[in-house]
Amino acid sequence: MPTVVYRDQRHSVAAGGNLLSALLEVGVNVSHGCRSGVCRSCTMVVLDGTVPAASQADLTAAERGQGLFLPCQCAVQDDLVIGDVSDRLEVGAHIASIDRMRSRVIRLRLALDGELDFVPGQFATLIRADGLARSYSIANQPGARSLEFHVGVVAGGRMSEWVQTGAREGDAVRVRGPYGRCCYDPEAVASDAPLLLAGVGTGLAPLWGIANDALARGHTGPIAILHGARNEEGLYLDAELTNLALGHENVEYRAFVLEGASDSAQRRPLDLNAIKDCATQPLAAHTIYLCGAPEFVQGLRRKLFLAGCSLSRILADAFVTASAPTP
């Protein structure tokens, strides 16, 4: 009889038995919904052992690579060690550099003490020595044991103000993650399909990572990168994106500002109409990435869905700002 280990507790499960049912039976409180592999609410992570392919069939390559699987679709065959999605390894790190970019955005680079296996577009949680934790999107490409975050300085934001004024190169921090499925998935997107990447504020960090990842994987279809900011000062990756577009025939960069004059940006909101104007094919043919403030991401996602885009082709990452600490 296979053994399943969860949080140091060993459970025997009948060979071929359904893992979700078995866990619930022994009192492990797994949040779950449809039990049909659709709602994904029971998603867990396999830490050791091999789960059946059926339990990962509907996940992205990135998610499978990170060991995510659906226990409701898992007929247990072999011994497994499983955990919650939040049970990721923490990695120690040191601050490698702190550079002020244009606007109130800081490029924070970390040197990792160990491996962190991420896919561009994902985010990770930065944990200060005293335990203060905030999540940031990863802007760099994997492979160099380093992480780059674009930290938007929020007035009264404890982590971002520390990064701006208190943090020093060499400071020890920890990183937990990665999380998120807002990534380029070559299995789900044809290499000649059109991509639309739209972000506001520091929502550009994951989009920068995704665009570079798509190019590195040989994506030949059009890649439109749309950045919205309050004013020109907020277009903090303007030079890099202009260069990226100059260097790649299939990359287009468009900027949008709400106020003030700008040489490079259109003065209009980055909304559904702006996206439609950038679309080279019917909207529903695009894979669309949305990153930034929740009201931007969620509002646009709904409008795009109603405009005929499948939710499976709208990958979104809403940046939720931590609520103010109670005095």
Binding site: C34, S36, V38
Partner: peptide
């Protein structure tokens, strides 16, 4: 929340079409 709603709608459709559901 659209994702939570879609999940519920999927459960509903699974049920009314006679699929596995709880």
């Amino acid at each position: 929340d659209m994702d939570a709603q879609i999940a519920k709608q999927a459960s509903f459709l699974t049920m009314v079409t006679g699929g596995p559901n709880s």
